[in-house]
Simulated assay, not measured.
Amino acid sequence: MKPGIHPDYHPVVYRDRAANFAFLTRSTRTSEQTIEWEDGRTYPVIDVEISSASHPFWTGKSRMIDTAGRVEKFYARYGRK
């Protein structure tokens, strides 16, 4: 790799406050906030709104969608053949 052209790639903690879940990974993002991780070191922390711990696809708690209403609306607009 050429020196001086790549962004700083360092350990960062991503935290999902809704699910009380955090994970340590590497990223080019940074933050002024820090957190002390399980290994005793301090890392920058980035808060996210949704992660695999709170996303409906991964948790299995998906919403029910009113498909019958959509189908009836389609038939009302375009008719049945």
Rank of each mutant, 00 (worst) to 15 (best):
76 A>E: 15
65 I>E: 14
67 T>C: 05
50 I>Y: 02
70 R>V: 10
11 P>L: 03
76 A>W: 07
2 K>S: 13
47 D>A: 08
9 Y>M: 05
1 M>A: 12
25 T>V: 03
44 P>W: 08
48 V>E: 09
19 A>Y: 04
69 G>W: 08
15 R>C: 02
51 S>R: 00
27 S>L: 00
34 T>F: 04
74 F>K: 09
18 A>P: 00
27 S>C: 05
12 V>F: 05
34 T>I: 05
47 D>K: 05
9 Y>R: 07
67 T>F: 11
56 P>F: 07
66 D>G: 07
72 E>C: 09
5 I>A: 08
71 V>H: 07
58 W>D: 12
48 V>W: 03
65 I>F: 11
32 E>R: 11
66 D>K: 08
79 G>F: 02
59 T>M: 01
8 D>L: 09
49 E>H: 06
57 F>M: 13
75 Y>E: 13
81 K>P: 15
38 E>D: 07
10 H>F: 01
48 V>H: 01
15 R>M: 07
17 R>G: 07
8 D>A: 10
73 K>R: 14
21 F>P: 01
18 A>Q: 12
64 M>A: 15
43 Y>C: 03
4 G>V: 02
79 G>A: 02
74 F>T: 11
74 F>W: 15
34 T>W: 00
32 E>T: 13
31 S>G: 09
53 A>Q: 08
22 A>E: 14
67 T>I: 14
40 G>I: 04
1 M>S: 14
78 Y>R: 06
9 Y>E: 05
28 T>G: 03
16 D>V: 05
73 K>V: 01
17 R>M: 10
21 F>Y: 15
41 R>P: 00
73 K>L: 10
77 R>D: 10
25 T>C: 11
43 Y>E: 05
62 S>Y: 11
11 P>C: 07
79 G>M: 04
37 W>D: 05
79 G>H: 09
67 T>D: 07
77 R>M: 11
35 I>Y: 00
27 S>F: 01
74 F>S: 13
54 S>L: 00
60 G>D: 09
24 L>K: 14
22 A>S: 15
10 H>D: 04
66 D>Q: 04
9 Y>T: 05
78 Y>S: 01
2 K>A: 12
6 H>C: 12
6 H>Y: 13
21 F>T: 01
26 R>L: 11
70 R>T: 13
37 W>V: 03
21 F>I: 00
9 Y>S: 03
64 M>W: 12
34 T>H: 11
55 H>G: 00
24 L>Q: 09
2 K>H: 08
36 E>W: 00
33 Q>T: 03
58 W>V: 01
3 P>Y: 11
64 M>H: 13
63 R>C: 04
79 G>C: 08
36 E>A: 04
44 P>F: 06
70 R>E: 15
53 A>V: 05
72 E>M: 14
1 M>N: 11
19 A>P: 09
28 T>W: 08
81 K>V: 11
31 S>A: 15
